[in-house]
Design a protein around this nucleic acid. Structure first.
Lengths: 188, 188
DNA sequence: TTCTAGATTGGACAGGTGTCCAGTCAGGTG
DNA sequence: CACCTGACTGGACACCTGTCCAATCTAGAA
């Protein structure tokens, strides 16, 4: 079943979905992504498990959807005069937001590795959104390879954060240096 | 239960472990990591599920262990005269090996995100081994931030490979460019 | 107000994970 | 050769994931 921010949900269904999303986020913060089960989310949302599975293709889909909403609700304009500062403002901002929702960040990384079609869709959107932010910071004439390098480094940081090798707070600081290294020798 | 390349296995136990590992790899290539179950691995190894769980803390642990062996069995010296070429020879070599075992590569990324203590141990070892290879290619006086940047970019590529956003063959080519960008302006 | 499409539900289902334990078997020791 | 330690086994366990469907609500149309 594919689902969420798709057109064709009536008011009642939309309400159900919102309750599930809110419950999912609460449950995630409360017990973490390993202990979370679709059935407890359904219960918290005041909905039957069967209904939850009407809108959620899988646990991974829930996490991906929550992360997508988390990312989409966040408007951020790159700040700073130099390109390096602008890119750093983006990575630092993202890292700060992740640090505010570490359970979500930890949940989404493995979730996006899933094979469900619904995850696939969101994965592409999330990836595109991140690349878009880096491109916006780098400017329209940016070397595509530089964009890709920054995106890869950020993905890598996400992975290492998910592994617990660094906190999401450290992530911001480390990426500052990493971005500086990548951009060294890239004008504007 | 912690386990594998630990001292304290007698010949019989070591033999059982080897059979499990070989069966795990076969099963992984045969059905992929999503369909693989510990019980089918046990069956393929000619061992009971209970025995399998004596040596394997979890499915994730199996994947992590297989990947660690895959990495450790591989001796590779960086080649080339310049630093860039040396680093590229490492990333290209790793990408080539991953391309030869895509199921394993796809399995290990989510596996390393697990929380089991056995996964934790292997995660640190695998991370250290990769960093060591980059450091060896970069030379003893390398800027630590450059090492980290290369490592992050590689992790990111692993993640994107695991997501199916790129094949492991493409990974080699893309990392060539990425490494060149990172190293631009870094002497020796 | 009644009807009805369709949202929701309860509950069963097949299959997987990881745990546990009492019982069996095999190989090195005496 | 009989013994005994410890590896291995069978099978039950609790709990999870996702799927399915017949039965039941419920809100808006007629």
């Amino acid at each position: 079943m594919s689902a969420l921010p798709r057109r064709g949900l009536n008011a009642r269904q939309a309400e159900t979905v919102e309750r599930l999303m809110a419950a999912g986020l609460d449950e995630l913060r409360a017990v973490g992504h390993e202990a979370l089960t679709v059935r407890t989310v359904a219960q918290r949302a005041g909905v039957s498990p069967a209904t939850a599975y009407t809108y959620l293709a899988s646990k991974n889909h829930l996490f991906a959807e929550l992360f997508w909403r988390f990312l989409a609700e966040d408007e951020h304009e790159p700040e700073g005069s130099g390109v390096v500062e602008r890119v750093q403002s983006v990575t630092r901002h993202l890292a700060r937001r992740l640090a505010d929702a570490p359970e979500l960040a930890a949940a989404v990384t493995p979730a996006l590795l899933g094979r469900d079609p619904d995850v696939e869709r969101l994965r592409l959107r999330i990836g595109a959104e991140l690349v878009e932010r880096f491109r916006a910071a780098l400017g329209p004439d940016a070397d595509p390879v530089v964009v890709e390098t920054v995106a890869l480094a950020f993905s890598g940081a996400l992975l290492q954060g998910g592994m617990g090798l660094m906190t999401y707070t450290e992530m911001g600081e480390r990426l500052d240096d990493v971005v500086a290294v990548i951009m060294r020798g890239h004008p504007t």
